[in-house]
Design a protein around this nucleic acid. Structure first.
Lengths: 198, 198
DNA sequence: CTGTTACTTCAGAAAATTCTGAAAATCCAG
DNA sequence: CTGGATTTTCAGAATTTTCTGAAGTAACAG
């Protein structure tokens, strides 16, 4: 590995975090190098920078492309493939959330829907299904919120995030009005996951 | 493994998802069994339910306790340790988010802060530090929002989530007022991660 | 064509993680 | 104390994941 100290420290950290983030060390390090680079980066640069086999770099690049976190960027007059991250940091955040939702949440939502269709064959199963219903309810609420928010322009999104819970003031002022109009979804419908456990 | 079909399907799914969620199969399955159970569950029940070695169940329970996702629940007149999940599904969601933030984000925030203290020794490092600054900015904004929101009562939280992007209407109405008062943070300050990449 | 450069694939090696069974420690009842 | 029930620990086995080097494929310049 052959990088300036500041960059190397960041790259090593991304490598260590990789396993917690559901990617492996090489993928983490490769992404870090591309993220910090002020120009597109090719496979040879990466072999040099992270010090692993070329084939391993190829795998990491494939993985990062499957996440849509890096993009091919052709450099004029170069035969090799160069890669860069998404341009804007918010585009990166959006993509990360989108992909993790797709990989970590959507499959469970599908399974829950299937299992909630079936009829319980015992009291044990009936109770279990109730719990699944609760889980389904919160996931629907959270992903529904995400689907809604994700469409906002970045400027609006940043505005919203900056407000934090101050937004609740608005809710308090407009409480009855909003509730009367009905928000997205039916938060008080039975079995929507908002009920307390007995 | 010895469970009713509906429950077994859910438990197997949790096992498969385990690796994507950063826990292992046994931990996933053990949690699923406890989550669906109608009553506190002991180690023997789990050995029976998921069909792995007792020591493996003990490890899984320790792991789940370190996540604070399960709790010891003493059953009167029983010597063995019984476990249950947090009572309310929203408490579970909150705990999950809290723990994943702690494990997946906080360490990076610490490293970023350290590296941003240092002086870049080259143009390459200067640019890299700019990127780290962008990353630091978005993480601060997102975690700041989380710290704020996380304190809301569940009822308010559900209300907020149900509204989704309808809340932006409120922003639009009150736009200048809120901005004048100043939201949490300084979304337009330079180097806060909201700038576009050149 | 032919030789060079670059990317991809893949079988097996290496490393990391998970799992087990046995032994040790703990806890309580009598 | 003593004995049984229960939990914890841990070394090594089993499994899974990651990584490498070599071979294969593709693209292109001359």
């Amino acid at each position: 590995m052959n990088l300036p100290p500041l960059i190397q420290a960041f790259v090593l950290h991304f490598g260590e975090m990789g396993s917690r983030w559901g990617i492996n060390r090489t993928v983490g390090q490769v992404y870090a190098v591309i993220f910090l680079a002020n120009r597109p980066v090719c496979a040879d640069d990466l072999v040099d920078a992270v010090g692993v086999a070329r084939s391993n770099v190829a795998m990491a690049l494939k993985e990062l492309q499957s996440w849509e976190l890096i993009r091919l960027k052709h450099v004029p007059g170069e035969r090799r493939d160069y890669y860069g991250t998404l341009d804007d940091i918010w585009a990166i955040v959006r993509k990360l959330v989108e992909q993790r939702k797709r990989r970590e949440i959507d499959p469970t939502l599908t399974v829950l829907r299937e299992l909630l269709m079936q009829s319980p064959a015992s009291e044990e199963e009936r109770f279990a299904q109730e719990r699944m219903q609760e889980m389904h309810g919160v996931i629907e609420l959270l992903t529904g919120w995400y689907d809604d928010i994700e469409r906002l322009e970045t400027e609006r999104l940043v505005q919203l995030l900056s407000l934090g819970s101050k937004i609740v003031k608005a809710l308090e002022w407009k409480d009855k009005l909003f509730v009367a109009k009905g928000g997205r979804g039916k938060p008080k419908a039975p079995g929507d996951g908002t009920a307390e456990r007995p």
